[in-house]
Amino acid sequence: MLAALALLLASSDPVAPVPLFRDPVHDGAADASTVYDAATREWVLFYTNRRADLKLTDPKDVSWVHGTAIGVARSKDGAAWRYGGTAAIPASCTGATLWAPEVQRFGDTWHMWLTVVPGVFKDWNAPRFLVHLTSRDLKTWECGERLDLGSDRVIDASVVALPGGGYRLWFNDERAGKAIRYADSPDLKRWTVKGTAVSTPGEGPKAFRWKRRWWLISDAWKGLLVQSSTDATNWTAQPGHLLGEAGTRPTDRAKAQHPDVIVAGERAYLIYFVHQSGEGAADPNWARRSLLQIAELKEEGGAIRVDRSAPVTVRLKPN
């Protein structure tokens, strides 16, 4: 009996900790993008490494979200994550501030789309653009092209391969009222803007295929907006917002922001970042701190639901 119990425990799926990951350098992990590295048999998570610990006297000074590198974390099982330093992003084609990595593998090459701000600014009034990089090993990155999307204020890429060929990119166009727009490409280099997927303001779109349909989840600043589609072009929004109300678990007491989604067969997991504004620390700047949480997505009647308080049993498989 004891041997059988030990075998069962050894083979059971791990339960994710709360929080899933906390950056050990600046305590400002945000904007995750997660992939499976078959070469090392590990899950690799790239994230914006916000400088939440930066001491500033002016509360309106947002230098702490500038001057940011891209952090890296690794995991064998998707539950226990270890810090892996910062990504080796070439300075020659980027800038002082790096945000919101989007990492995907197409063919035998890894691709990253990165939001770049060319400097460190005290306010939000700076140009920003998307840069494409490539890698063979997820460690050494090479410069690609700067994307021309008809605006000098674009952020937050999400890219998929379309079933009929070609690729689609969703992004936030800040000059278009923070709308989520989309563009198509035959080769991941030349992009043509096609239209708007979400006209209401938001950011951080994440597009994915699951349960025989397309989904697009974006950060509406009052929780996550969920849309579904049969063709990745025409979208229907489900009522309300996911995780707009504060959670009850320690470190999870604020709205969810900027989602990533891992599809693992019939299961799907949402990775989101959450500010620590609900934790009540004596440090007046504690609310800047942000960390990553995980929740399992459930599909019911064509809509996505999630219980952020439920323990998450992680069963990740490489796609």
Results as ranks from 00 to 15, higher is better:
190 R>P: 01
212 R>H: 13
171 F>H: 02
260 D>I: 04
215 W>M: 00
270 L>W: 13
203 E>V: 01
206 K>Y: 03
155 I>Y: 01
228 S>Y: 02
182 Y>N: 05
211 K>D: 11
196 T>R: 04
188 L>G: 06
275 H>I: 08
257 Q>I: 04
218 S>K: 01
243 L>R: 00
267 R>A: 15
167 Y>N: 05
224 L>W: 05
264 A>K: 04
237 A>Q: 13
254 A>N: 11
251 T>E: 07
240 G>R: 02
263 V>I: 14
271 I>E: 09
276 Q>I: 06
225 L>H: 04
180 I>P: 06
245 E>G: 03
178 K>A: 14
156 D>L: 02
255 K>T: 08
231 D>C: 09
159 V>N: 08
260 D>N: 14
171 F>D: 02
169 L>A: 09
274 V>E: 08
199 S>R: 13
188 L>C: 10
276 Q>D: 15
263 V>Y: 12
178 K>L: 12
210 W>Q: 11
260 D>Q: 12
157 A>F: 08
271 I>W: 08
253 R>I: 11
177 G>T: 06
224 L>V: 03
169 L>N: 06
216 L>E: 03
191 W>E: 02
221 W>M: 08
249 R>A: 15
262 I>T: 15
236 T>C: 06
240 G>F: 03
245 E>R: 09
265 G>M: 10
147 L>V: 05
165 G>Y: 09
162 L>K: 13
202 G>I: 05
219 D>H: 03
214 W>Y: 14
187 D>L: 11
240 G>K: 03
251 T>Y: 12
170 W>P: 10
228 S>P: 00
275 H>T: 15
232 A>I: 08
216 L>N: 05
215 W>C: 06
191 W>D: 01
219 D>C: 06
155 I>E: 06
261 V>R: 03
250 P>H: 13
261 V>K: 01
185 S>Y: 05
158 S>D: 07
217 I>F: 02
223 G>Y: 00
227 Q>H: 05
274 V>P: 00
176 A>R: 11
186 P>Q: 14
227 Q>C: 00
266 E>K: 15
211 K>Q: 15
245 E>Q: 10
222 K>P: 00
154 V>W: 05
201 P>R: 02
261 V>C: 06
243 L>G: 04
259 P>W: 00
192 T>R: 14
217 I>M: 13
229 S>I: 13
241 H>C: 00
182 Y>H: 12
187 D>E: 12
199 S>F: 03
214 W>D: 03
222 K>H: 13
235 W>A: 00
165 G>M: 12
190 R>E: 12
263 V>A: 13
228 S>I: 00
242 L>A: 03
181 R>K: 15
178 K>G: 03
231 D>F: 10
213 R>A: 07
190 R>Q: 14
262 I>K: 09
147 L>T: 04
156 D>M: 09
210 W>M: 12
274 V>F: 01
160 V>E: 09
150 G>D: 06
209 R>F: 15
